[in-house]
Design a protein around this nucleic acid. Structure first.
Lengths: 182, 182
DNA sequence: GTCTATACGGGGATAGAC
DNA sequence: GTCTATCCCCGTATAGAC
């Protein structure tokens, strides 16, 4: 396939970085262009409008999310443990894309909301396939969401320490083994 | 105490409503004033600037949050069950204030971030006092956060059904009884 | 492909009338 | 206490030069 010009990727990355670190309002065309080392006009050559820039980001996110679901379904430790572990913010490309999309979804951005919804459904499906009990799948998802929530909105990114994560995984294992009605 | 004029409360309520339903960008002085039935100039008489309006909202939030922590500490069903149950979005005054503050915290609003942090610390303290095991307290908090996250950012507000909530509370009970190392 | 210049609208805030 | 008028800045987008 005809790989997109490096400038596009650089602009997308700058957009994501600003969204992560300074929020939606700061992510103006001017700021994004400057961070990527071009002018506003240069940006608008690659992305014809701000909506187009957002659409580019969402396509990027959906790619990474689909990849992640595939990995999750094959994870040796199981989908549940994989999900919770990977919900801890690590500043991976997917992490950054998710936070960026979440920032945008605040402003009633339909494209961002749809992409996020699709991603979450993929996770829930993979999880439910593994643990069978929907209530347990739901609880696991909520745990992961909570972890992400802290990362994305805690003011600063606050990851759980290794010990905290181990404790959490122990609890997850017990939830999965026990089921909702045990 | 000299109760504040009704106009202030009405403006604050309009601000919260717009923040909840349409996000930060839509919550302009013009929009808030119109929703409250006054003009922009009228709003600026009561709140001298947009920052003052935000500060007013945060004071309101802190009041409600402190009240909630007090209630939680005395809840007959226990702090953990109370916390998870009340994390389900119900459009209460506190729910609406929290979502509003969360929207603002996206835009690097320091006042909003501080108020939110203080609130969460109050909950965590109350929870830890009850369940003793910090890992368990943490897991419970994350579950509640996940619930709230869905409500605040799921595009539309999505509360858990009664059955789903009952299942979840069953799981919570098992987590609390088991501890992290069981 | 990238730049500068410019048009246009909107948001925050002040001044001053009523 | 509330309104209108107005100012200034900034964000998006277009036109057209290089």
């Amino acid at each position: 396939m005809p790989r997109p010009p490096a400038a596009r990727a650089k602009l997308l990355d700058a957009f994501i970085t600003i969204l992560n670190e300074q929020g939606e309002r700061a992510a103006t065309l001017e700021a994004v262009a400057t961070a990527a080392g071009v002018s506003k006009g240069g940006l608008l050559y690659h992305f014809g409008s701000k909506d187009a820039l957002v659409d580019g980001l969402m396509a990027h996110l959906v790619d990474l999310a689909d990849e992640d679901v595939a990995t999750m379904r094959q994870a040796p430790e199981g989908a549940a443990a994989y999900y919770v572990r990977s919900s801890n913010f690590e500043d991976s490309a997917l992490d950054r894309a998710i936070v960026a999309a979440t920032r945008l979804s605040q402003g009633e951005n339909a494209a961002a909301q749809q992409a996020l919804l699709r991603m979450q459904q993929g996770w829930l499906d993979a999880l439910t396939d593994e643990v069978r009990d929907p209530a347990v799948a739901r609880a696991i998802i909520l745990l992961g969401d909570g972890l992400y929530y802290r990362a994305a909105f805690g003011g600063k990114v606050l990851a759980a320490s290794t010990e905290e994560m181990d404790d959490l995984l122990g609890i997850v294992r017990r939830i999965v083994d026990g089921g909702a009605t045990a």
